[in-house]
Structure formats: C-alpha cells, structure tokens
Design a protein around this nucleic acid. Structure first.
Lengths: 301, 301
DNA sequence: CATTTCAATAGATTTTATCTATATAACTTA
DNA sequence: TAAGTTATATAGATAAAATCTATTGAAATG
C-alpha cells in the first residue's frame, strides 16, 4: 500500500500554515510548481481532494483537515524519533532541562546535582524551579525534558512515575500546646491558626487537604517559601506542616518544635513527569534513578 | 532539518521483522542493495549506527531499538492517516464494525440499526455481540471500529464517551415480599437469593457492586442472558436487577414484579469506546449521536 | 478590458532510488 | 587450511522521482 511521504506531509502543513501555495513553497524552500505537484501526488495517494484552491487563500476540505491534523502528529513524531535516537546513541550528554517544584528544589539540588555531574560528566543539567502548573506548561512546550513534582498529577499528554515518599511533619512555636500533645493527629490542628504557602504551591493544597478542606477562609498571611514559613512559625504566628525532605536537608529549625504525626503517616509522593512521547524518556528515567537514591539517603535515615 | 523518510522507516521495520537484509528486502519488494543503501542513508540522517551487521542475523543498537519503536508508531499513524482521510472524505460509507455488549445488543439493535440504515444508506453496519473484554481486544486488533459498552471503562489506548444512562430495576417473582416493600433499597435484597449473569458480563459486576460486594460466594445458578434471567426469576428461583433498557425494549415480564428502587437512582452509564488514534473517530461519534437519540427515545419515556 | 495574482501545466534537468553485477567478509566444511 | 557458503557492502548503470524554469490559464481588481 502506498503511504504518503514525510515530505508531502510537510508540504501540506506548510500550506496550512501559510495559506497559499507560493508562500508555503517559499517556507519549505521549493518552487511553487514543486509544491503543487507534491500536494497533487498526496491527493492521489490519499484518494481525496484535500484543499479547495480558491482565489482568496486555500480552504481545507474535511478530508484535508483530517489529513492535516494527523500529518502534524506524524511530523512531530518524526522529529522526536530523530531526537530520541540521538539521546539513545549517547545518553545523558548535552543539555538536559529539569524542572523542580519550589518545595523540593532547594532541598534536593545541593546534593543531587553534584552527584549527577559526577556520574555523567558530559551532562549539562539545566534546572528550573517553578510551581507545578508552570512545569507542566514547560514540558508541553518542549522547554523542559522532565520535571520533579508531587504526585498524583493527572494531565493530558503527561506521564509520571513515583520517586519517593516525603512525610509531613508538624511544626509549632516552642511551648505551643500541640508541641506536647500525644497522640498528635492532623485534626488536632486549629485551622484558623495554620500557616500556609501562597497560592499555586501544591504543598499548600496538600496541607489544606490533610487538615480538612473546609472552613479555611480567613488566613491573611501566606509564606512565599518553606524558609519563611518556618521563620513565621518560629515567630509565633501559627503552626504548620513541613515536609521531612526540607528538614533532612537542614532547613533552620531554631525556635520551633518539630513532631511526627501519630500513624498513619501523612505525606506526599514525589515523582517524575515528562511529556508523552518525549525523546528523552529513558534518560529521564535514568536520572530519576539517581535522584531516587539521593532521596532515599535522606528519607530513610 | 532532514527527517527520515517513511520508506526508510519501513525498511527498518522490515529488517527488524525479518532479521536479515536479504529477507527484509524481499518483504518490501526491493533488492538487497537498495535496502542496504536505504538503511545507510537512514543512519546518516539520524547520525547514529542503528544495527550491528553480524554474521548470524542483525542486532539492533539501543539507538536502533529506539528508532524502531518510534518508526512503528509513525507507520501506524501514516496508515491511520490514509484511512482517516478516506473516512473523512466520504463518511459513513463502506463497512463499519461495531461491537456491543450482550446486555445491550438485543435491546438496542432492532430499533437502532434500521434507523442508521435509513440515515446512512451507503453504510454497511457489521455488529458483533461480545463481552467488554473481547470488545476491547477487537478494538485493539483493528477488528472493530467502535464499541458500545458500560462506563466507566479505563484501558490503555482506548477512549470513551458517554451515550446515555440506564437505570437498574428490581425484579422478583409475583407475590415476593420485596415486591411490595416501600421504600425499596438495594441493601434490602437478600444476597443469597440474588440471581446473576454468568462471569464476564459487566452487568454482573454492577449488580454485585450495588448489592454489596462481599459475601456473595455460593450462587450455583447463573444466567447466560437477561432473557433467561427473567425466566429464572419468574420461575421463583430468586430476585435480580434488570436494566431499564431491556424492559423498554419489550423483554417478556410475565410472572415477575418490576419495581424502581427508591432514590437515589442506581444504574449504569452506557458509552461508546474506540481505539485511540482510530481513523474513524468522527464517524463513530456521528453514529453515537444517532444511537444516543435512539436511547433517549427509550430511556426518557 | 487590461492588469495583477495565484495555481496548474509542460518540458528540461537534476537528484534520488533502484537495479545488476561484483567484491568483501565471516563462517562452514571437507 | 582451502574451498564453499552465506550475508552485506560497493560500483556503475538505469530507471524513477523530484525539482526547476518558463509559460499558460483562470479568477479577481482597478
């Protein structure tokens, strides 16, 4: 069976993007008759008229729109194939762009990045610290090769795998009543007294979920990072949750009491995310393995 | 940027499938030197060695495996493009293969098929009545273009959309104690007395879920269809659930009492499923719309 | 109604793909 | 170990295709 060629599909896409044969021909560096012939051939192969050649721009038929949409995914796949082969041929060389959420990045990178550099000397690791939504955007726009964030995260075209579990601990000002209560349950926390990160941090959402979703309307102060959050707690402004990862990484805990909650353990799952079909999936997973060990060093003391 | 050609990718796939240059060349109807040259060109374009030419068969490098896997999806997509264009050019002509689960098929087809035939005279609708698992297989193997089944159904590479809701009604022998109880709740049903379809029917699983999952070990009799199920109930062997769809379609109800459960309404959602990337998605959705109206005629009396 | 604009066509030319024939390399076997 | 066998690579010729230039045709514009 005669299949359309990659070249013909690029012609079709160029035509759709430019709106005219001449402009499209220019954009793919051929003459107009070449492009005309290529598209005619494509229509013959597919057995259907794809574009109506009107005087004011071309108009795609339903068949043409169908072909166009599928052509775009095929061309994208062909590009990914090429990139994927390069990545498979010499894995973990060149630039790898990794996004990390702000409640993990400061506590992970100092240890993990040198470890990676050591293991993969040719790797140029570029890190971007942003909130989950931005990271997903970055993956979609091919600006990131992978991202580290909190699971579960469901999104179209994004795939994930778990890396490690991160327990939430309770922090309060020294001498706070809950600093000695036993057993300590998330429900014990006075909701009006809890300090949270500003909007957009997934850790904020986790904390809200853990402490009961409702009735949390009136907080006026929100921290911009876990560092300031701890300082605010130390300053007596309230209590909060903090991931064990941050503590193990040595976040300053002067002036606060830190306590585990009574079982069951509450926490978040840290995971790796990548764009489906990405050319660097296997590299991402290799990196994930190294990072995973890095986590374990911290999380299992 | 120079992309690999469709032809080169078919060469690579043929080589993987046949294991030698000569056999692969045969299978794509070119001579061995042509295939050799094509693959060499592909390796140049991708900038990596894809296969090790050993004496006993060829061996794919990691880069080659990466390329191969992606090449297969690209070729599959190219075929789907071609089919999709044909379908878009003259929708709902030719053969359309639709699978339907057994607890829907008998009650839907008599009305729906003539309606579809009338609306799309050129359509040759081929129907296959099988349980959900088989239908999904059929979709995956390209033996079916779409399927009607009960949602939710999650499966890799399968997409769905809802068509209609189908209420479950209670049936019991005439004069059964539950035939007059008010209000009537699913929990009221004596679990040891309930009749179910044989294994594999999703309706069986739905019924089990509705009446409480546990403690349902000892049923000895299982019906092979809703028709026999009703007859067994009429024969005093027990009680059961039956979808409203079947009743509206005129399943014989002599000798049984039929009752709605007290709110909330329990039931199943009927939906359409298709293979992701299928060339006939839009046709399937068009069909679904017609079928949906067909459902509505029945379900909203 | 001439002019402009854009796509289609014709014919020449270049490039690419494929073929036949042969060389080369790695293993087998006598 | 030398001849035979099998599999891929290479060379050169040939066929097929893609592309180019030049031109035509058709629709819109002033």
């Amino acid at each position: 069976m005669q299949l359309p060629s990659i070249r013909q599909l690029t012609f079709l896409i160029a035509l759709a993007d430019k709106g005219s044969f001449i402009a499209a021909a220019d954009s793919v560096f051929v003459t107009q008759p070449s492009l005309s012939a290529g598209l005619k051939e494509l229509e013959t192969i597919l057995g259907a008229k794809l574009v109506e050649r009107g005087r004011k721009g071309v108009k795609f038929t339903p068949a043409g729109k169908e072909a166009l949409s599928r052509a775009r995914t095929i061309i994208a796949a062909a590009i990914e194939l090429k990139d994927g082969v390069r990545a498979a041929a010499e894995p973990l060389t060149g630039t790898f762009r990794l996004g990390i959420i702000p409640t993990i990045a400061p506590f992970l990178s100092p240890d993990a990045v040198p470890a990676l550099k050591k293991q993969y000397p040719k790797l140029r690791l570029y890190l971007r610290e942003e909130q989950t939504a931005r990271l997903i955007e970055g993956l979609r726009d091919h600006e990131l090769d992978a991202a580290i964030l909190a699971l579960p995260y469901e999104a179209n075209g994004i795939e994930t795998m778990p890396l490690a579990d991160d327990e939430f601990l309770f922090i309060a000002p020294k001498n706070h009543e809950l600093a000695i209560k036993n057993p300590l349950k998330p429900e014990d926390i006075d909701i009006s007294n809890i300090l949270l990160l500003e909007d957009g941090h997934c850790l904020r959402d986790h904390a809200i979920k853990v402490c009961g979703a409702s009735g949390l309307g009136t907080e006026e102060v929100r921290a911009t990072s876990l560092f300031t959050l701890v300082q605010m707690v130390a300053g007596g402004m309230g209590v909060s949750l903090i991931p064990k990862l941050a503590i193990d990484a040595g976040i300053g805990l002067d002036g606060v009491s830190v306590r585990h909650f009574s079982p069951p353990i509450i926490g978040r799952q840290i995971g790796l995310a990548w764009r489906k079909g990405s050319s660097r999936i296997s590299e991402a997973k290799t990196l994930a393995n190294v990072l995973c060990k890095q986590f374990d060093k911290k999380l299992i003391e």
